[in-house]
Design a protein around this nucleic acid. Structure first.
Lengths: 210, 210
DNA sequence: TTTCCTTTGTAACCATTGTTACTGCACAGG
DNA sequence: CCTGTGCAGTAACAATGGTTACAAAGGAAA
């Protein structure tokens, strides 16, 4: 655990803090597709990502989904931090996008470390900053972009996060993440294929030149 | 200034902290429509709202606007706080929705108070929490609601924030905030009038029963 | 092979939203 | 009083995205 932490957070946290994290944190390794958090779940710990990626989803009352953003190495979930204060039920769903290693830290430590470690304060504020910006970005995409642009952005981001130019998703999967319908996504993907930007296959697609 | 602060923040901050704020803060009173912050502006201070309301807008590269949320008494701008860390250019525009009193605090004090005052830490984390939730809300509206529902929500929220069941806006104004077009808004407003929910006038409208 | 289920392709159609264009009206300023 | 300017009403049309329905293809299991 301490090696993992040092690799991922050695430049962020001082040695003492890393030692504290090792003391109280619990190491977790979850497979792709594992549901780490459901909407309405009570939040008991704060995740520190070591490797892998987690996708954060929002859902409305009808069960319609929407991908908000991905968490990656060095990220944590600002929602969790925010929830330490008020009511502590999750507003979002978190699913492992790839096999993922992370460390869970009990939320009780948050305030203590905020006082004690400057690096922790910086980390917490930076995390908030990044998350706010990610949310603004997502909002921009939805408000200002059309579905074809959003689709291209989605494919690029997914390829980046999984580090793979093959996207292992069905059209239906993509439609869920973008809060659209399968037929619409098939239509747009076909157009992208005709433009030579991607190559479609059953259950996956290749990115050629987006 | 100290009375204003005590009324708005007496329950949030301890007396010492209020005294410190009085020492270093500058009181500002701005009229409705005053632009407090433009996208790309450098952030020098952190606002604490005393009375009034500020609307926070996002804009894309084509100049299309979108209302994100309102700041009200007891609120502060999380974006500002976030910006103290990294690059400190504003991602948003801030315009006084009503006549507004606020206190600007130099951002240098942020970290000092974060260590020194528990009430300040709580305030900062709560602010982040609220802002994240507001953004999630806005995102829900845009992603999951249709324009007619968004319009109704907009009118209700505006009435609440201005504390006035008369909305002093032209159809064009509303269209800008919702990132739509004047004709669409006129059409929907007309429908709402036919349903007896509002009454239309030139340059303003009355909310009857939303 | 045959069967069954999932995924994808496609057409036809609808609803919502956005666009263009033109009208009439209100009101401020001359 | 007249006139210009900005605001609102409305029609016709276009574009985007969502829905329904059905066919075809791939692949796994019997």
């Amino acid at each position: 655990m301490i090696q993992d932490l040092t690799v991922a957070y050695g430049k962020t946290f001082e040695r003492e803090l890393i030692n504290e994290i090792v003391q109280v944190g619990t190491f977790k390794e979850v497979p792709e597709g594992y549901k780490l958090m459901e909407i309405g779940d009570y939040i008991r710990g704060m995740p520190l990502l070591i490797t892998g990626a987690i996708k954060i989803l929002r859902e409305d009352e009808d069960g319609d989904e929407l991908l908000l953003y991905y968490l990656e190495q060095g990220d944590t979930c600002s929602m969790t931090m925010a929830c330490c204060m008020g009511d502590n039920q999750s507003e979002i769903r978190a699913i492992a996008e790839t096999d993922t290693k992370l460390i869970m830290v009990p939320i009780q430590k948050m305030e203590e470390w905020t006082i004690k470690y400057k690096s922790w304060r910086n980390f917490v504020f930076n995390s908030y900053h990044e998350r706010l910006n990610e949310l603004l970005n997502t909002l921009d995409n939805i408000a200002f972009q059309k579905m074809d642009e959003r689709l291209i952005g989605y494919l690029k981001e997914k390829a980046r996060v999984t580090n793979d130019h093959i996207i292992h998703s069905t059209h239906q999967d993509i439609a869920y993440d973008l809060h659209s319908s399968r037929v619409v996504i098939s239509r747009l993907l076909k157009k992208l294929e005709e433009m030579g930007k991607i190559k479609l296959h059953r259950n996956y697609l290749e990115i050629l030149d987006l």
